[in-house]
Design a protein around this nucleic acid. Structure first.
Lengths: 201, 201
DNA sequence: CGTACTTGCCCAATCGCTTGCTCGGTTCCG
DNA sequence: CGGAACCGAGCAAGCGATTGGGCAAGTACG
């Protein structure tokens, strides 16, 4: 009665399964991961997953929504407290990095399976969220140009595109082999690159 | 007699089929693309592909090899003519951008299906080529540090990793909807970002 | 000229397997 | 008892791969 067939019970077990699935998605992408692999990771049979979810896509949907909520929340907080676009951008960079490390699966899914998701109306919210993200960045970049803090010849849209994709690069390194850099080192390196480039002086 | 069974005839038709397959790989990745889709794009049945190729992997192999040859050739030419690491790096950036736009499929394949390819001994040459690419970049960055042209506190390996991934970002924009930037605009924006950052002065 | 053979290309059919998913039944626990 | 969790078996669809054969154009040879 409480749960018909399509509903989402939102139990603790369910949340755990989502996390297990997310780990697999983060490494292989959405489509390349099978429901049997997810079930194996949970120690159950694949059919048993459908007691918790009505489809594989629902798992993906949940992961993507949580990620976008997290990112957008962070951006709104980043621009709320200050009038200085440089401070706002630095906050957005740090906020993005933190959010991405919290949702590695969502990133891999958006990278590998964007064509798959964006073709479905169920995932139309992806485009909406992306547009808000883009607008937030461009607003700050334009403000920085007007205030004279950023180069006047700067193409805000182009820089945004570069930044957006640059920011989620280090996330895919996390699971990489061998010694790595700490999140701090990476963010520092990025911010340095962003504001002053690689040249001396 | 001439062609036993595993050979590659290297005909014109074959090259055309590789191009069709590459277009699909560029959009969906290697594993996510089926041989039936490739055949459909060519207007033939899937089985007919096996007259030209002995396996789906052979198509991928051909695409990847051509790409790596192109990139490495460009790098060798870029560092050959000059002693100035900044000039060498600028040449490498331009060479990379050009090569990537010529081999969008290879990029998507390396991004989406790296785990798949690198696990096979048939594709062992991928790691070899990647190492030569990395060494070329690091050499130039270190030379720039020693000559005082680049910041002394610069982590060459970190910067290389960032650059490598940054460089192939704009490639995935090419097929995007609506107005875009020209290759020149993108390269200029990147080089500017790389050498002087976004700050005014 | 005409016949025989080769070559390049493709179809039709099928194999063994994996995919996401279904569903009736069973176990466990409050 | 009742509900949540899971099992076990299986389905239709699709997957990559392979085989055997057919068709047309070319080549060789008498």
């Amino acid at each position: 009665m409480t749960t018909t067939k399509k509903a989402a019970p939102a139990s603790e077990r369910r949340a755990h399964l989502v996390r297990l699935a997310a780990d697999l998605f983060a490494e292989k992408g959405f489509r390349a991961t099978t429901v049997r692999e997810i079930a194996d990771a949970a120690g159950i049979l694949s059919g048993s997953l459908y007691h918790h979810f009505d489809s594989k896509e629902s798992i993906g949907d949940e992961i993507l929504r949580e990620f976008l909520d997290d990112v957008l929340g962070g951006y709104r907080a980043a621009v709320a407290g200050t009038d200085d676009p440089r401070i706002a951008i630095e906050r957005m960079v740090r906020s993005s990095t933190a959010a991405l490390s919290r949702h590695r699966a969502a990133l891999t899914m958006l990278q590998n399976d964007w064509a798959y998701f964006s073709a479905q109306k169920r995932f139309a919210y992806l485009r909406t969220a992306m547009k808000e993200i883009e607008q937030t960045w461009i607003d700050q970049l334009e403000r920085g140009k007007r205030s004279g803090q950023f180069r006047a010849d700067l193409d805000a849209r182009l820089i945004y595109r570069l930044l957006r994709d640059i920011l989620w690069i280090p996330t895919s390194w996390k699971q990489s082999r061998g010694q790595s850099w700490s999140t701090d080192e990476i963010v520092t390196g990025l911010l340095h690159l962003l504001f002053v480039g690689i040249s001396a002086h």
